[in-house]
Design a protein around this nucleic acid. Sequence first.
DNA 1: AAATTGTACAACCGCCCGGAG
DNA 2: GCTCCGGGCGGTTGTACAATT
Length: 223
Amino acid sequence: MGRSPCCEKAHTNKGAWTKEEDDRLISYIRAHGEGCWRSLPKAAGLLRCGKSCRLRWINYLRPDLKRGNFTEEEDELIIKLHSLLGNKWSLIAGRLPGRTDNEIKNYWNTHIRRKLLNRGIDPATHRPINEAAAQDATTISFAASDVKEEKPTIGIFGGSKDTKIPDLNLELKISPPCQNQPHDHHQPLKIISTAGGKSLCFACSLGLQNSKDCSCRAASIGE
DNA sequence: AAATTGTACAACCGCCCGGAG
DNA sequence: GCTCCGGGCGGTTGTACAATT
């Protein structure tokens, strides 16, 4: 059927953003909010595609972004999340406050992939490279199944028969961000897993009981 | 010092999904 | 139920900079 382009390409700038463009975008969003990205460039006086504005804002201009190097903790969390979620960068980013999907994706491709390869782990399957090489070609790209004690059924993927691992019913549920939080598209998703009827926060389901992301502890303290 | 190669990351492209009409 | 549109996502490319030869 074909789609109309998101903007008139003939009259839009491309490539790196200038300081002036950044300033225009920031001041417009501060004054009017994010609103409709399609009409925003015109309203803000920018010769940019709406998508480009959105990307620039979300990835680089938002005030709540945490710039700078990833910590070792963040590294490990990304690896664990990737082993469960695959290349669902936005979901992974949701668990890393201040980080964006694009940033994590780039970081994965440049740093973590190599780090895993150095450890002898296939970054696509999270299996030891020798084992991964011996795997049937039909092996799926994310593999929580290599951990024998943890064989989660990941409900958020719709339960493809190839991804179901029967032994342990570890359902992941994703709920909208907490309502009392300020509006933020990248507010971490609350992902709760239930194993054997016992509710675990997402951090615990990943084996990060002592992580600051663990909400079980906070809940149990409050009880 | 210049050329080449490698690395990091910003930005774009095209597709998919969900909501509105 | 269908179509269209806007937003969002993941993959890929482009480019600047660093390291090496």
